[in-house]
Simulated assay, not measured.
Amino acid sequence: MSAHFRHIAALGSSFAAGPGIEPLADRAAGRSARNYPHLLAERLDAELTDLTVSGATTETVLDVPQRRMKREFPPQLRGLPAHADLVTITVGGNDLNYAGSMFALGIAGRISSYAWVRPLSRVLPGPQVPNPTPDSVEGAAANLTRVVDAAHGRAPRARILLVDYLTVIGPDTRQSREAPLDEASVDGLRRLGDQVSRVFEIAASRSGAELVRMGERSRGHALGSADPWVTGLPDRLRRLRTLAPFHPNAAGMRAVADAVAEHLEA
């Protein structure tokens, strides 16, 4: 390893926190003890302050408290240690309703396949793929840039990495039991994933933060691929109590940790 890191701090949403991956480190936060920040800290033999919370937005990282499962989490940046020497940041997807829209469309698609629901699905409007405006993308990128700047302010000696979201809907994704999405939804969600990656590119160019391009790296490991790094909708919807569909799986978290470590070695 070209550089030694003593203390890692992780900021972010569910694509960093790892909901559904056992064992959980904090159930209310939807935070796994085997998410990529934990795996990276083990690999680098470093201490870890994991501040990630599922459902986080750039605002709840910056300055807005987040309420989840009857707990209130303070803005994540408040917990960033001044002595951290490596900060990873994976947030912004929820600003564009990335995971939430996949979940809503997947549930709607699965339910509409039930015979007794079909007549209703023809007359009732279902969820739509978000179509963020340029202003929405710009707003998310501006806030992500603010996150980087604030992290530099709180941990001035830290190396800061923006770690992009894994691709969920990729070139091999087709309508299936785990991805019950019509062709238009698949195309729209694929574009939405590209917009999330664009948010990271803009923020990296403006802030000077380093960028780990996980969206690009994981494109061949999306749903429908031979080796997916993400989960789809479980066969039985009752399993939603323990699984997080359309999120990184254990292999995906290992892949992110590997990519970050390789980036640091380069």
Rank of each mutant, 00 (worst) to 15 (best):
M1G: 15
A3I: 08
R6V: 12
H7E: 09
I8F: 11
A9F: 05
L11G: 11
S14N: 07
F15M: 14
F15E: 15
A17M: 03
G20C: 08
L24E: 15
D26T: 00
D26Q: 00
R27M: 12
R27T: 13
G30N: 03
G30D: 03
G30F: 05
A33W: 01
A33R: 04
Y36T: 08
P37M: 11
H38S: 14
H38V: 14
L40R: 01
L40W: 05
L51Y: 00
T58I: 02
T58L: 08
E59V: 12
L62P: 08
D63Q: 11
Q66F: 10
Q66L: 10
E72Y: 08
R78M: 13
G79R: 00
P81V: 06
A82V: 11
A82G: 15
V87D: 09
V87F: 15
N94L: 04
N97E: 11
M102I: 11
I111K: 01
S112W: 04
A115K: 02
P119E: 05
R122Y: 06
G126L: 04
Q128T: 14
Q128P: 05
P130S: 02
G139H: 14
A140D: 12
A141H: 00
N143H: 13
N143F: 06
L144Y: 04
T145H: 09
T145G: 12
T145R: 05
R146V: 06
V147W: 00
D149F: 06
R154F: 02
P156F: 01
R159V: 11
R159T: 11
I160G: 02
I160M: 05
I160N: 03
L162C: 09
G170T: 08
D172M: 07
R174C: 10
S176C: 12
S176N: 12
S176P: 10
L181R: 08
L181F: 12
D182H: 11
S185Y: 09
G188A: 04
R190N: 13
R191W: 11
L192P: 05
G193H: 01
S197D: 15
A204R: 05
S205C: 10
R206Y: 01
G208V: 03
R217E: 15
R219Y: 07
S225I: 12
V230D: 05
T231D: 15
R239Y: 13
L240F: 03
T242E: 15
A244G: 07
E262M: 13
E262A: 14
H263N: 10
L264Y: 03
E265A: 14
E265H: 07
